[in-house]
Design a protein around this nucleic acid. Sequence first.
DNA 1: CATGAATGAGGCTTCATTCAT
DNA 2: CATGAATGAAGCCTCATTCAT
Lengths: 204, 204, 204, 204
Amino acid sequence: MPPSKPSSRPLRADARRNQAHILEAAEAVFDTEGPSGSTEAIARRAGVAVGTVFRHFPTKADLIQAVFTARLQRLTDHAVQLQGAEDPGEAFLDFFLGWAELSATKLTFAEALIGEGVDVRALARQDAYLRMRQNLLQAVEGLLQRAQRAGRVRGDVGITELNALLIGTARALEQVRDDPDASARTLEVVLDGLRLRGAPPPDR
Amino acid sequence: MPPSKPSSRPLRADARRNQAHILEAAEAVFDTEGPSGSTEAIARRAGVAVGTVFRHFPTKADLIQAVFTARLQRLTDHAVQLQGAEDPGEAFLDFFLGWAELSATKLTFAEALIGEGVDVRALARQDAYLRMRQNLLQAVEGLLQRAQRAGRVRGDVGITELNALLIGTARALEQVRDDPDASARTLEVVLDGLRLRGAPPPDR
Amino acid sequence: MPPSKPSSRPLRADARRNQAHILEAAEAVFDTEGPSGSTEAIARRAGVAVGTVFRHFPTKADLIQAVFTARLQRLTDHAVQLQGAEDPGEAFLDFFLGWAELSATKLTFAEALIGEGVDVRALARQDAYLRMRQNLLQAVEGLLQRAQRAGRVRGDVGITELNALLIGTARALEQVRDDPDASARTLEVVLDGLRLRGAPPPDR
Amino acid sequence: MPPSKPSSRPLRADARRNQAHILEAAEAVFDTEGPSGSTEAIARRAGVAVGTVFRHFPTKADLIQAVFTARLQRLTDHAVQLQGAEDPGEAFLDFFLGWAELSATKLTFAEALIGEGVDVRALARQDAYLRMRQNLLQAVEGLLQRAQRAGRVRGDVGITELNALLIGTARALEQVRDDPDASARTLEVVLDGLRLRGAPPPDR
DNA sequence: CATGAATGAGGCTTCATTCAT
DNA sequence: CATGAATGAAGCCTCATTCAT
């Protein structure tokens, strides 16, 4: 996901490999230390020099954005893939759990950027992010509406509320990370509020 | 709340005033800029010199802790004061909303510390925090159990789950901060899951 | 010459001493290595830590500006002090030589800033510089006009041309720095062009 | 003009073309941004990759040197071509103006090197430059002596002083770049000092 | 030969913390 | 006790130079 020059020739094999390593390293470091994790640490973890990190992501904000964009992409893929599932309620539940699982321990894009003192440059580059977010929301909305039509989810929640609830639930589950029973009960409350009773405890 | 010298002589009047100013300033700055707000900024806002900040809070972690301890204290006070309310369901709801309101936009203790790279020293000093947290949990548990006995809250959630839900809800409400309707609907889902139906939208 | 807070309380004794050291060190380093001389080198030479340099001059551009402002101040002082001299021609010559001597090897303000990639902030702070420059020009104009009225300097050069000539001469003398005779002859040409014959060779 | 491999096989056509492009690009970039203009920028402007720049000029200092050598060569050519002019005074004046014009806005070799932190290696490689400089000086000396014999230039300036004056004049004219009248008057003073009265203002 | 990715030293700047005044 | 100057590690970023492709 190189931020600039969107349509230059494809990266050399090694460059692509490095880019992936950097992204993984950044994800790991940001998850551990928050967005204040240092570029140096990321480079070290990715097995490259700092300069390489900056060649791929000219700014720390770019790197943060890339990490979150990648995460959004994964969620979008999941949503799309569940699009054709048989049981709409099951599909919706599945996605809800997946998001909660994924987001646990992780930070939100906005939060990360706030922590970085976003500047104009960063904002200018964000339409990639906005588009991605749009994609995700559309895919999720599909799942939501099918589940609502099937009577499995209450009708008065829209994509906005769902989004908020997903993020909040992820945060709630963080708090009980090492108590699977509490985790299940906590999740149960939310699902119940959505009329999605009988959720199985997340298996981990 | 300087962690060292647990029972030194009481502070001089001006010193006590300074300490209060610093705490307020720190709360304001951390809320605005996150835990990476600079000590200098806090000192400036408190109308003192950096040295003074460090005399009262030997470490930035100490200051962060003090801010959160103060916040916990306020919550505890609220819980205790609701202890004797007539309607247990109402009391519980009241507290729930108060917490959500308070936490919105604010950062969690853990989060703040993570952002600061907590070290062992910091952890060792946290028993003041742990004690306070204990107090809060007890007070809240009181509210919860009364509400449960009154049949207003489902019986399978304990203080652990409640804590998680409160934090998560605060985070969820952050996401819809400027849409009062969505905010109400989001809150409704959670309260509904807790069997606390019919909550009025938070008035702001 | 602290750039910000123009009228705060006077600096502590040690701070003032350090500021002077830093300024001297900066002057020396910039003279040797041009404006790309590193802050670290300046700090080392001044016997302080980098942080101290930045406390006094928040930006490298500020430091460069301070160095040049100090230089302009010295020139202005010289011009003012020659204001009351008996022989206007002698006074003018004296000043001319002083400037040439001083400027030799040195860089111009503009040049230095160009080399630094001046930004808006820097420009905003430059009125101090502009005022100083104005002072200098006025003082020099006084010297020039007296010398012209005394018939010692040709009438068709104004302050603008003089300024250009002074800077150019300084640069010319740089080229023959280690050949006093050539230096004298070079200077002679310019003075002669100004009708200021018979200049003694600069004594160094 | 790569300093190493003095007599290697002649360059391939494309290589020679690249070399020329790089040289032009370097000249343009250095003129715009000073010697701190980046190699990358030069490569971009030349339409090649950085690697190519370094193949032709193993060091940035080499590139700077090449740029200035090229400039000297042009001056030398000019001097040689004026060698046979009818009016020695006119020829000399012509050359003087040409140099001043050329040098205006541009940086001197020494200056550029200073800005780069020249090291011993660089100095060791400079004989190409020294030879060229020698050529130029000889050509100019020819012009000078003819003009002196024709009584158009004072006899006590030699090539050394002339060199200094030329550089200084270029610098002086820079200061009045956008005021043609002041420019003419400034130049007049110098030419007058050389006994080269009545010079026409440079036509630009 | 050209390309452009990788390297890593070095530059500027911030900021928690210490300590002389 | 308060002040605010000094310290210096650490962060982000640039760029000359090297080297695999």
